[in-house]
């Protein structure tokens, strides 16, 4: 668990004791420890995403307790699978419906760059449609890789960088 306040020296604490500092730190901590993804499984990577939520690789212990079906209640979109031209406007709409702050993980090669499918039907990387925070290569990436990407994202959020 990432507790920035306990890691600081007293000097640092005094230096950073600006008004609102505690609340900001509290907000960052709460955001990074309960990242709730929206169910956005598109293709094969979605199966590995489901495997990472299952018992062997339990994603819930890192805070992603539930995958929310409604984007209004989620803050993380894990785009798992190939995004096609027909699905792109739908994805943008789902992304727009998520309230701030929100993050996007492009899971897999197809989401990151179009993957194996360099053709007319697949959008060559979801960063053409939504801003991506973490790119996760793999076809499909292992559940541990997905967990690693979520932990990296949490570290960034916890430091207030995202």
């Amino acid at each position: 668990m990432h507790l920035p306040l306990l890691d600081q020296t007293p000097e640092q604490r005094a230096k950073d004791a600006a008004p609102g500092f505690m609340l900001t730190k509290l907000a960052e901590w709460s955001r990074d420890t309960s990242l709730w993804p929206v169910t956005f499984g598109l293709a094969c990577c979605a199966i590995e995403m489901m495997a990472s939520t299952a018992a062997s690789y339990d994603l819930a212990r890192f805070g992603s307790e539930v995958f929310r079906a409604s984007p209004r209640q989620a803050d993380l979109m894990i785009v798992s699978g190939r995004l096609t031209q027909k699905m792109a406007p739908v994805m943008r709409e789902v992304y727009d419906q998520m309230p701030d702050p929100k993050w996007v993980i492009a899971m897999g090669d197809c989401a990151s760059c179009g993957g194996v499918f360099n053709n007319y039907a697949v959008v060559q990387g979801v960063d053409k449609i939504v801003p991506v925070d973490v790119y996760l290569p793999g076809c499909p990436p292992r559940p541990e890789a997905l967990i690693d990407s979520i932990l990296k994202l949490k570290a960034e959020i916890g430091k207030g960088k995202r």
Partner: peptide, 29 residues
């Protein structure tokens, strides 16, 4: 059609062995 990946057309520009890797991703279960 929301997952139409154009795989059938992609086969035509790849060799048969390259195309094999595409087949895994059709019925991915």
């Amino acid at each position: 059609g929301y997952l139409h990946t154009g795989i059938e057309k992609t086969f035509e520009v790849k060799t048969y062995l390259h195309g094999l890797t595409l087949t895994d991703r059709m019925d991915y279960l």
